[in-house]
Computed example of a mutant assay.
Amino acid sequence: MNWYIDVIKNYAVFSGRATRMEYWMFTLFNVIFSVAAMLIDHFILNGLRLTDTLYTLAVLVPGLAVGARRLHDIGRTGWWQLIAFIPLLGAIVLLIFFCTDSQDKTNKYGPDPKELTI
């Protein structure tokens, strides 16, 4: 849960690097909260989709920011997220990028975040 909160605290920080763990833990909790919001909409608000829409809008910028920092961690620019607009191929490429191990040592986006936590 701390990973999720840390990403939310860095709401619009697109600089620096994010480890795989930070990105995937944020994604996991994001999916859990999104499903909970959908269930609330379905069972309590009779399918109004208000809670889900508000939650999605609230985490849009932090999600893009952590995605950009994750791409920085493998030495790529955050603009690579735009490849998601290419159907199927874009999602596959991003999945591979997000699963790739960090670059060792410092790269042009900053120091290795794994070394900072040790």
Rank of each mutant, 00 (worst) to 15 (best):
residue 13 V to R: 12
residue 30 N to F: 02
residue 92 I to L: 03
residue 59 V to Y: 03
residue 111 P to T: 14
residue 104 D to F: 11
residue 81 Q to C: 04
residue 60 L to D: 11
residue 78 G to C: 06
residue 7 V to E: 00
residue 60 L to H: 11
residue 72 H to G: 00
residue 18 A to G: 08
residue 25 M to N: 02
residue 73 D to L: 01
residue 60 L to Q: 11
residue 20 R to K: 10
residue 109 Y to H: 14
residue 43 F to I: 12
residue 67 G to V: 04
residue 103 Q to D: 15
residue 118 I to A: 15
residue 114 K to P: 01
residue 99 C to M: 14
residue 14 F to L: 07
residue 26 F to E: 02
residue 76 R to D: 12
residue 102 S to D: 13
residue 66 V to P: 02
residue 105 K to Y: 10
residue 93 V to I: 12
residue 118 I to E: 06
residue 15 S to W: 14
residue 80 W to V: 08
residue 26 F to C: 01
residue 101 D to C: 07
residue 102 S to V: 10
residue 3 W to T: 01
residue 8 I to V: 05
residue 55 Y to E: 05
residue 104 D to C: 10
residue 76 R to A: 09
residue 76 R to V: 09
residue 41 D to T: 13
residue 11 Y to I: 00
residue 6 D to T: 03
residue 48 L to F: 06
residue 75 G to T: 04
residue 19 T to N: 15
residue 45 L to V: 05
residue 31 V to M: 06
residue 7 V to S: 05
residue 15 S to E: 09
residue 115 E to A: 06
residue 14 F to C: 04
residue 59 V to S: 08
residue 20 R to Y: 12
residue 53 T to V: 09
residue 54 L to Q: 12
residue 77 T to E: 09
residue 6 D to P: 08
residue 88 L to P: 05
residue 11 Y to E: 01
residue 91 A to E: 09
residue 94 L to E: 01
residue 100 T to A: 10
residue 41 D to K: 11
